[in-house]
């Protein structure tokens, strides 16, 4: 078994997702069965094969370095759950 209680807690923490005990158990089961299933890729000989990270063969295009205003901070902040004096607001970080 690749994923145990410790591993799932670690991944959940890295993902910033709180899991309760029941969820942890379910995900341990799901993730193990998915990881067992993808194990079959080890049958494939990939020696000297270049990884394919992006299918578009085009070289990243460059654009003119000109500024443009597409969004105003006011508009953007309208979607924020909380904002203060033109900034996003979050719970107090420093005591």
């Amino acid at each position: 078994m690749k994923i145990d209680k410790n591993t799932i807690n670690k991944i959940a923490r890295l993902s910033r997702i709180k899991l309760d005990d029941k969820e942890s158990e379910d995900y341990i089961k799901d993730l193990n069965s998915i990881l067992d299933w993808v194990e079959q890729l080890n049958e494939v000989n990939t020696e000297n094969v270049e990884p394919l990270s992006n299918i578009s063969s085009s070289i990243l295009p460059k654009r003119e370095d000109v500024s443009n205003d597409t969004n105003s901070s006011e508009e953007i902040l309208e979607n924020a759950p909380d904002n203060l004096e033109g900034f996003f607001a979050v719970p107090k970080v420093v005591e």
Binding site: V38, L41, N42, V44, T46, V49, E50, P51, L52, S53, I55
Partner: peptide, 12 residues
Amino acid sequence: YLKAQKVRKLIA
């Protein structure tokens, strides 16, 4: 991840 990207290359 890297393994999957290599198999992806073979599929392409």
